[in-house]
């Protein structure tokens, strides 16, 4: 196993850490492959709760720009591969019969913020930045939209995805994107432990059954909807307008 993802276990609680701090934990094909593998491995353990977090300053900065910029990758199909892998990962994470907590240590942006919406509970802190800036880059957050709509409700999700940008942890908490808010970054770990311990005190079968029923009721395991959404994201990604905006962002980040 490569070191892009770290999986640790402590009694009933497992922690999966995205370990690509130098790239703000951006989702690359290799990273997503490791994340898929980690979930498969977890399915065979008897932990009750999974905490998903990021190493370093960011939780997850979304799609790896290097992979989605055709000019850089020289491969027009890479974006769609990445988006499809993300769609399949979100399904796998949602179907995991354990309570999944997102412990948002820093920026959770675009696909990274979408990941938090797949989790059952999201914990963050006041200084974290969360949001869906896809439209600012000429993109459409299609692949994560079904999760955002379920988490926030259609009306609030519509505004969040159309307005783009990022919001503070405080605002994210006020619109329901974050369920538990720590007063500072330093206090996130303690709050995450408290909530994780409390969730882990539940019977694992009761938790798994409840989660399974909720997934059935909200229809969230509809694979075809997500794969269609991934293709829509990919088709907007290929437009010259989006490629130009992404290129400008890439140069801005470098400088």
């Amino acid at each position: 196993m490569s070191d892009l993802v770290t999986l640790t276990h402590d009694n009933a609680i497992s922690t999966m850490t995205i370990n690509r701090a130098d790239a703000r934990n951006a989702l690359s094909i290799d990273l997503l492959d490791e994340m898929h593998r980690a979930i498969d491995e977890l399915a065979n353990t008897d932990t009750h709760v999974l905490v998903l977090t990021g190493s370093g300053k960011a939780f997850c900065a979304g799609m790896d720009l290097k992979a989605v910029l055709i000019e850089l990758s020289g491969d027009e199909t890479l974006g769609e591969q990445l988006l499809t892998s993300l769609a399949r990962f979100t399904l796998k994470l949602r179907a995991l019969p354990k309570v999944v907590i997102a412990s948002v240590n820093g920026a959770a942006v675009g696909g990274g913020c979408g990941l938090t919406c797949v989790c059952d509970v999201t914990i963050s802190h006041t200084e974290a930045k969360l949001g869906f800036p896809e439209v600012d880059l000429g993109l459409c957050p299609a692949v994560i939209a079904p999760w955002v709509v379920r988490k926030l409700g259609p009306s609030v999700a519509r505004r969040a995805m159309l307005m783009g940008g990022v919001m503070s942890g405080v605002e994210a908490h006020s619109i329901g994107l974050v369920d538990h808010l720590a007063p500072s970054r330093e206090e996130l770990g303690t709050l995450t432990d408290t909530v994780a311990q409390r969730l882990a005190s539940g019977g694992p079968k009761a938790l798994g059954t409840t989660k399974d029923l909720l997934n059935t009721l909200d229809g969230s395991l509809d694979e075809s909807q997500l794969l269609r959404a991934a293709q829509l994201s990919a088709s907007v990604l290929r437009t010259p307008e989006a490629q130009a905006a992404l290129g400008a962002r890439m140069n801005h980040t470098k400088g």
């Binding site: 896809e134 600012d136 880059l137 999700a157 907007v236 307008e241 989006a242």
Partner: peptide, 12 residues
Amino acid sequence: PIAGVRATKALC
């Protein structure tokens, strides 16, 4: 950028 906004509204 126009395409992303319109695709996002249509998707919502």
